[in-house]
């Protein structure tokens, strides 16, 4: 869906979509593919449109079960197989319970505000709620561009203001495809 910034609103560099997915439980588990299980919550092109959607969403720390919220640029699906992601990868940050809401907000604000300074490389960001820990990740197009991935890591460290012992790892989507696991 095409959206434009409203009159007097602050345009963003890109259009973005919010997606939501939750791992199906019980008998639905096998019949529902990951893609079918993902729903677009909203599309935005301005700072104001972003807040309108975000303010109505459940905060990341209040999400339950095995759920993920994705914010991706318009035209890019949050799937490894998407053309924009095929050669890409992601930085993964594992967070102990209690930190996710603040870190997730800081991550998306940095992305929307173009703080990463890596051109068109960033594809989107994901927050993944799990039982023991929460995980945030940021996806980029080219897993083999070391300069790009280092810059993303450095910006992540700065904007998230993470505790010093936080574990960060980079995983290519190709590896994820091979082991069929996100993390």
């Amino acid at each position: 869906k095409d959206v434009e910034p409203g009159p007097g609103e602050h345009a963003l560099q890109y259009t973005y979509c919010f997606w939501f997915s939750r791992k199906p439980t019980g008998r639905n588990q096998q019949s529902t593919s990951f893609e079918k299980n993902m729903k677009i919550i909203g599309t935005f092109r301005s700072v104001e449109q972003f807040w309108q959607i975000y303010s109505h969403m459940i905060r990341a720390n209040e999400l339950t079960g095995h759920s993920d919220v994705h914010v991706f640029k318009g035209g890019i699906k949050p799937l490894w197989e998407d053309k924009a992601n095929r050669l890409g990868g992601k930085w993964i940050v594992r967070l102990r319970k209690g930190l996710v809401a603040r870190c997730w907000e800081n991550l998306i604000l940095a992305m929307l505000g173009e703080q990463f300074m890596v051109g068109d490389e960033v594809c989107g960001a994901v927050v993944s709620i799990r039982f023991q820990e929460d995980i945030i990740s940021i996806w980029n197009r080219s897993a083999n561009e070391n300069q790009v991935t280092s810059r993303i890591r450095d910006t992540l460290c700065r904007v998230l203001n993470l505790p010093p012992n936080t574990i960060m790892e980079y995983k290519t989507h190709n590896e994820s495809l091979k082991d069929r696991s996100s993390f």
Partner: peptide, 21 residues
Amino acid sequence: GTRIIYDRSFLLKCRSSPMAN
């Protein structure tokens, strides 16, 4: 080309008073 850059505090200000910026 030119990129539209916003810092965190500006984005947060837009949340609290969208038309005041």
